[in-house]
Each structure stands twice: as C-alpha cells, then as structure tokens.
Amino acid sequence: MDLKFLDFEQPIAELEAKIDGLRYVGDDSGVNIAEEIDRLQVKSASLTKQIFSSLSAWQVAQVARHPMRPYTMDYVAAIFDDFQELHGDRMYADDDAIIGGMARLEGTPVMVIGHQKGRDTKERVRRNYGMPRPEGYRKAQRLMQMAEKFGLPIITLIDTPGAYPGIGAEERGQSEAIARSLFVMSRLKTPVVGVVIGEGGSGGALAIGVADRLLMLQYAVYSVISPEGCASILWKSADKAADAADAMRITANELEQFGLIDGVLDEPLGGAHRDAESMAAGLKNALIAQVEELKALPTETLLEQRAAKLAAYGEFREG
C-alpha cells in the first residue's frame, strides 16, 4: 500500500520501502527473508511510535490533512447502517462540501452531518476541497431542525479548511449562514455530538460544531485560523506556520487540557489512515456512548447544560 508518507515520516518510509523490496525478492532464499521482514516491521512500528510520540503541532496538522485520512463518508459507511443522504438547502443549491442524511447507529435513527473533502482531483473540485458555501450551512440547519422535529440525535463530523471565501459566497450571505447555524445549534431540543475528524478550520468548522459533547480524534486539529493564515498575519510570513501552529495550541490534547473539548479519541499507530477500520470502530463506540448518555437527559436539562457550557467559554480576570 502506498501510504503517502509525510516529510517527517521519511525514516519510516525508508524502512517500509526496504520491507517492500524484501517482499519483492520473495521466498528464494527461504526463512531468512521472512525473519528479516518481521524484524524490520517491528522496527518500523517502534520508529513510528517514537516519531508519533513527539509530533509538533504543525506535524499533527499535516496528519490531519493527510490525503489518505478517512473522511466523513468513510466513517458514515463504516459506522452507520441504512444511510440515506438528503440534499439541498431548499433555497438555492445543494452544497457537496457538506453532506447530511439520516442513518442508524446500532439501530437508533440519527441525523449525520459532516464536511466532505474529495479523494481525487475531480471529487475535490466537486466538494470544493471541503469548503462550504452558505448553501451548505443552510442545508445543515434544515436537517438539524428536522432532526429536532423528529427527535433524532445529531452527529456532526468536522473536517474543513474553512468556509469558502468567494464572491458568490459573500453575495449569498456566508456570514449570516454561519451565524444562524450557531444560533440554531445552541438551542436545538435534541442531543448534538460533534467530532473533529480532521481539520477544524475556524468558523466554517464551528458552524456545525456547537455541540453537547465535542470530541476530537487524536491527530485532528482545531483552530481559529489556519496556521499559514495566522503566520502571514502575525509573523508576516506564511513560512512561520509551524510557529503559529505551536502558539495557537491547535492539537486535541492541548485543547482538552484547556477544557475546550470534552474528549480525545486515540488514533491507530501512525494516524487514522493507517487503520481506518479500527479508527471507525473506536469512533463508533464513542458515539454510541455519548448519544446514549445524552438521550437519557430531559430536554430541559440538555438545553441548560449546553447553554451553561457555551456561556463558560473564555478566560478572563475580574477586578
């Protein structure tokens, strides 16, 4: 499998190339090669463990943006049954950068909404690289309000570089679309679980991320502006993205420490794309647990807790 190794994974890539080479040589020389492959695989795993145990924030961002990382549709296929996609904002268009629909989570009907990136060039363009236009947010709002109406818990999967900065998006009210999503989500009379599965890009991510429980995958990132954007504004150079990524504390573990998210889901060694199946299984368990817990709460309590949680964001001093 071509794993598309990132820059900082080059030592792993070299080992893996060696392993592939040995496999290619085949069984001619018998046992020794199999032993050598085993030995190298152990070494590769421990090297991966070592490299991934001390990733910088910028390196984590690279993993979060990895071209092979599982996207919303991959998780939908692996976690839910009977997914029926629903399209359109009923006003203007259907935005392929956000998908939504009803599905079953271990039998329980739920509404699933998520950003969707494309896997190949053609799909990337169709999905607009996962950058929604106002229609996407309005579709999401429509589906959330429908979920509320029929008592379906809502699960959102967040993975976007940000809301699309285009002329048409501005003309059709990108600001209002995002603002209204926040407004609507804050008072939905049904449980909302949000999970950042890849890139949590600013307002475009938050717009489907106002939740009773907000989780992040271990190598997902969530930030107010992209590290490149922050660097070009504050450091006057996009080359300082790594510094900006550090300064903004964009990783799941740091954000959990600051109390900004409710939990971190461990990823397989080397990132979710190395073992999408086990990642999906872990995510599924977490979703089932969260939905069950939230469904047990009376609606009034749910809304009170959500309001209190949102009101508490931010640190300041009195006096």
Binding site: A179, L206, G209, V224, A247, L310, G314, E315
Partner: peptide
C-alpha cells in the same frame, strides 16, 4: 486562538 473562536458560539 480557539477561545476566541468559541466566543462566536457563546
């Protein structure tokens, strides 16, 4: 950073 983003929700 994210504290700021979340003021939008708040």
């Amino acid at each position: 950073a994210l504290f700021s983003l979340f003021q939008m929700a708040k």
